[in-house]
Nucleic acid binder design. Sequence first.
DNA 1: ATACCTTGTGAACCGTCCGTCACCATATGA
DNA 2: TCATATGGTGACGGACGGTTCACAAGGTAT
Lengths: 210, 210
Amino acid sequence: MENTRLSRKEREYLRHRQEILKVALKLFSGKGFHNVSMHEIATASEFAVGTLYKFFSNKEALYSALMIDASKAFHSSLMAALATSGNEMEKIRACVEAKIKVFTENLDYVRLYLSETRTASFNIKAGLDIDIKVRYEEFLEKLARVFESGIKKRLFKAFDPYLLAVALDGISNALLFQHIEHSDAHPFDADLIVNIFFQQIYKEGETRDE
Amino acid sequence: MENTRLSRKEREYLRHRQEILKVALKLFSGKGFHNVSMHEIATASEFAVGTLYKFFSNKEALYSALMIDASKAFHSSLMAALATSGNEMEKIRACVEAKIKVFTENLDYVRLYLSETRTASFNIKAGLDIDIKVRYEEFLEKLARVFESGIKKRLFKAFDPYLLAVALDGISNALLFQHIEHSDAHPFDADLIVNIFFQQIYKEGETRDE
DNA sequence: ATACCTTGTGAACCGTCCGTCACCATATGA
DNA sequence: TCATATGGTGACGGACGGTTCACAAGGTAT
């Protein structure tokens, strides 16, 4: 009975915390960190300003909690996909599919996550940056190792595996971004990304210079 | 003599304006719009705060001037490359080379430009966003039309030309970014980008699902 | 019923920063 | 030499927004 009550309270606490995060996410992703005030978050989440500070020590901590969550979710999802059983090609396909899934299911996160991943040490102070960068780097490394073993097996041509990882990630991001912003115009899916990336586009052998 | 003196003054004026922009660029690109104060720019450029407002009506206008400049420079350079004489393949190669050149020569701009191009309607108010987006879109369209005519000539496989443009741009950005941040580790150049993008990476025909 | 504690409140405080404006200094022209 | 204009100055006003803290409300234990 005691533990039940305690956990009720804890659940309340977490529910409230979640509610704040949810509202903050929507606001941050819409207007950016600096253009959202704590008062705004307070009003939108139907708490008082002071209450926010019972959950998060300051604005940046609130933002960090958000980013860390997103980063972890993305990371674990992509890593899981790369650990799929199957050959290198299938792993990569699974990875792209996972990415599409995570992205489209968490549009609000995506904006924040991408803007953070992309913009070096911009917006926010260090610490958070580092945390996210590390996770992202870990993912790229793992993807690179998949390419590497694929190259060893002669499945793929022998480019620098890390750069292949960067390139694939770059293509996926660009196409996903494009799709998010102008969803109607150009239909696309995982196959498209994979095909554009892996299939021979240029038909003649004349890639040579002059 | 009168016009000479007048133009001297004008030149002074423009030199000062340039100086301010140069300093502001360095600061903005290092710390982001919101983390740079007008006082900081004033001190760094060795002018008084009030003087800045003789050149730019407010902080945003100063920032805009910067972004517009960068955007125009990038745009004209890339468009020129795409207008190169030669077949579609050569145009695209020229475009990638131009991009590498512009990027590496204007690293400070790149951070601002990319973060602006990428992050939708973040950071700064509208107007500027629109201006930049329009130019960027124009570039993508032109690139897409190059792909399109390449496809018609059976040079390239028949993917959606616009998506190919997005994809190539995405790859270039990703690799360039990677190179800017960890320049030592993985050597790269225009050929690498073009090759990764255009050559067949996946060797077997088994891109099929299960 | 009373003391107590936890959760929530929001007015007020304080620092930061944008933008202004009255005021120099230099130079140009009379 | 004096008047005027122009480029430049920087202390200051005012607004905004993050953070605090004294207090309220509601539940819990004694």
